[in-house]
């Protein structure tokens, strides 16, 4: 948790999109930016990139004001996926309230996924976060490509972990909102447990989720 100020009635949360290089973390944020209503969110800020690859991070903020007046700001970050930017990943992970792991569905990328997930586990423990207490959602992106691992197989592999797993194509824009919604729900539950959002601040779960994940109404 980045900030919680009771006097100012301000809560700032952090959600991190983690995963191997080129698995589509920034594309996920771009898609969220395009698909969600402008009222609930700020602008997508992309820090310097080299050849379209994230080297620092991207940031997309979301806002929610509870009936009690509590202002909740959710900052969604991506990390650079390349192995060499490990220090940046660690820095971005600090004080995270939730993690979305964007995996690459292509068969040849499965080793890279596993490596990146191990790296996530290691970095979480290095910044003092317990992976089992953190809401964690897994997305298998790039389902639109040929040569992907069948969904049944992915679910069989990841099912035993108990983590919510989503299939998606960020490029085609499906599965992204579902992933984000699951993460927001998980985030709400853990924060509610810690701060008593419902009890003390009249934040309803449905309202919170609906406000943050409000798709642009189709015309």
């Amino acid at each position: 948790m980045i900030e919680f100020d009771e006097q100012q009635k301000r809560l700032v949360l952090k959600l991190v999109y983690y995963g191997p290089a080129l698995s589509g973390k920034t594309t996920n944020l771009l898609c969220l930016h395009d698909r969600l209503q402008q009222e609930g969110r700020g602008e997508l800020m992309m820090l310097d990139t080299t050849e379209d690859r994230t080297i620092y991070f991207d940031l997309l903020p979301f806002f929610y004001v509870a009936p009690s007046g509590l202002k909740i700001k959710l900052k969604v970050y991506t990390v650079p996926g390349q192995v060499r930017h490990d220090a940046t990943r660690k820095a971005v992970l600090q004080r995270a309230d939730g993690v979305v792991f964007i995996a690459d569905s292509q068969l040849i990328q499965q080793g890279v996924n596993a490596e990146s997930f191990a790296n996530l586990e290691q970095n979480l423990s290095m910044v003092g976060l317990a992976i089992e207490q953190l809401p964690l959602v897994v997305q298998f992106n790039k389902q639109d490509l040929p040569g992907v691992v069948p969904e049944a197989e992915l679910r069989e592999t990841w099912g035993p972990t108990g983590l919510p797993v989503f299939m998606a194509s960020a490029l085609q824009g499906w599965g992204v909102l579902e992933t984000f919604q699951a993460a927001v729900e998980g985030l709400f539950d853990t924060v509610d447990q810690k701060l008593g959002l419902r009890e003390h601040y009249q934040v309803s779960r449905d309202d919170f989720v609906a406000q943050l994940v409000q798709a642009e109404t189709k015309l």
Partner: peptide
């Protein structure tokens, strides 16, 4: 403001990495 913020964020990450290194 936006550009300054970007620069600050970049610098902060950079400094963090430099410190860690």
């Amino acid at each position: 403001v936006t550009n300054n913020l970007k620069r600050m964020l970049t610098t902060e990450v950079h400094t963090t990495i430099v410190q860690e290194s």
